[in-house]
Design a protein around this nucleic acid. Structure first.
Length: 265
DNA sequence: ACTCGTGTTAGCTG
DNA sequence: TCAGCTAACACGAG
């Protein structure tokens, strides 16, 4: 589920946890918490508190403070393909119907923080591809896709010979763009996903940057990337909502890709 | 039964 | 060495 817009909403949930004493930590899932052993994260955080909630691209992390007020390790969270963060008893994130009401089965509970006031922040993930780890390495991430300047965007995305969609999905180039947001951005800019970046003009790169900002703003406002204009048309036999031409399907950069056969030729 | 997938990454190839 | 690609990861949905 999560791309940059969803993760930003998750960050806002996480921000609600700041400043409260951590009474207990459930880090039983050794796959989600790898390479830490069960109990390691609990031992590092118990008695302390989270002090700041940050996000770059799809990666979340919190600064922490131990019981003596000394700086503690950063707590890193990545929601993978299907992770959701929520306080027990509060409503979950917006999203497609199929994700609602089916996401709180006990077996999908992967990680939890219980605070001294009794509230519990929970990570649910059907697919178990979320990651929780101490002091995550952020060096491999490019600048946040929502913050990057037009010039920086053109330099980074325009470098190399890969198909432009592969470049947009590369988290070391820009952090935060996932498969749906890439299709939405390319459709908004009317650029073919398979075009090698070295063939793109400066104008096309500028259009892509504009389209990215527009798509991001709309997705954050409306509750997620699934609200994008082209997303509902990523189906066999469907048509482009702008020109009516048929949608095409294929694999670009290793990911399932849909584009307009006429405008993104 | 069988295929697909809103993400990441180790390992392979040229 | 680097850029790019593929398979694997785990598991529910269609």
């Amino acid at each position: 589920m999560p791309e940059l817009p969803e993760v930003e909403l998750a960050r806002q949930v996480l921000a609600d946890a700041l400043g409260r004493e951590v009474r207990d930590v459930d880090d039983h899932d050794d796959w989600v918490c790898r390479p830490h052993a069960p109990g390691d994260i609990a031992a590092a955080l118990r008695g302390g508190k989270l002090t700041e909630a940050h996000r770059r691209g799809k990666t979340l992390w919190c600064e922490t403070e131990n019981a003596d007020g000394e700086p503690g390790p950063n707590l890193g969270l990545h929601l993978g393909m299907a992770g959701q963060l929520r306080f027990a008893g509060r409503s979950g994130p917006p999203g497609p119907r199929r994700f609602r009401g089916r996401d709180e089965k006990p077996e999908w509970f992967r990680f939890g923080l219980t605070f001294a006031d009794g509230e519990q922040l929970r990570l649910f993930d059907t697919r178990r591809l979320s990651r929780v780890r101490l002091d995550p390495d952020l060096d491999a991430l490019g600048p946040d896709a929502g913050e990057v300047s037009r010039t920086d965007f053109r330099t980074r995305v325009g470098r190399g010979r890969a198909p432009v969609k592969a470049r947009l999905l590369d988290q070391s180039v820009l952090a935060g763009i996932g498969n749906l947001l890439a299709d939405e951005t390319l459709w908004q800019a009317a650029v073919s996903p398979a075009r090698p970046v070295h063939e793109l003009t400066a104008d096309e790169l500028t259009d892509l940057h504009k389209a990215l900002r527009k798509s991001l703003r709309a997705a954050i406002k409306h509750g997620g990337v699934h609200t994008g204009e082209i997303i509902g048309h990523r189906r066999a036999g469907d048509h482009c909502p702008r020109c009516g031409a048929e949608m095409a399907h294929g694999t670009v950069g290793g990911r399932s890709t849909w584009w307009c056969t006429k405008e993104q030729a």
